[in-house]
């Protein structure tokens, strides 16, 4: 039984075999991400390659979201860096950015010629409806984390409401909610009730 098959049956994870595998994996998932790479990244990293469990994925995305920078690029930096150091971080981020960068510039050149074609606009509308569903599905999967099985859900609702309904600037929302959430988690840990 190979490592991947073992991981499949035991529910554990495997490591990327080489920098090349890391680079091409991130290149593939970068190219599949329309309207955001997060849902594809979850599918690829957790279900396909099994480099991360769903819980690890949620934790890495959370940490990367709290740091400045594009979230999915930060995720590639963390995963690449953990397995192959600086070279891994460069390979993973170059993989996720490189080909989409070239494609986007080509699209930019073509765009002026095709912007008026109705099929192009219609296809984009269909794609964006699907993309929205994929992002919401990812949120639902992440919400299954044990870290949300308590009163902490209130912080998920607060972050959602602040950004989605109140339209507050993200930096402000994070600056307000994260210290409160950390304070609450610290207090729970001190009281020994974090797992309940």
């Amino acid at each position: 039984m190979n490592a991947e098959a073992q991981a499949l049956t035991s529910g554990t994870t495997v490591a990327p075999r080489s920098i090349g595998e890391l680079f091409f994996a991130f290149m593939k998932l970068g190219l599949q991400g329309f309207g955001g790479v997060l849902p594809v990244a979850r599918h690829a990293l957790v279900e396909n390659y099994r480099w991360l469990t769903m819980a690890e994925f949620t934790d890495i995305v959370s940490r990367c979201q709290a740091l400045p920078g594009p979230n999915i690029v930060n995720v590639s930096i963390c995963i690449g860096g953990r397995h192959f150091g600086v070279r891994g971080a460069i390979a993973a981020s170059a993989g996720i950015l490189g080909v989409p960068f070239v494609l986007l510039l080509v699209l930019g050149v073509l765009y002026s010629g095709y912007a008026q074609v109705p099929e192009v606009a219609n296809a984009l509308r269909g794609v964006s409806a699907v993309a929205a569903g994929l992002i919401l599905g990812t949120a639902l999967r992440m919400a299954a984390s044990p870290r949300l099985r308590t009163w902490r859900t209130v912080f998920a609702v607060a972050a959602f409401a602040a950004v989605s309904w109140l339209r507050l600037p993200l930096a402000l929302v994070l600056a307000a909610i994260i210290p409160l959430s950390i304070g609450a988690a610290w207090y729970a840990q001190k009281r020994g009730m974090s797992g309940s």
Binding site: L38, T58, D59, V61, S62, R63, Q65, A66, I135, L136, T138, A139, M142, A143, S145, R147, L148, R152, T153, V154, F155, A156, V157, A158, A159, F160, A161, V163, S164, L170, L174, I177, I178, S181, I182, A184, A185, W186, A188, Q189, S194
Partner: peptide, 13 residues
């Protein structure tokens, strides 16, 4: 991690 996970879920949604 406990503190950030719910905030992330809210922002992704």
């Amino acid at each position: 991690d406990n503190a950030l996970a719910p905030v992330t879920v809210g922002l992704v949604a």
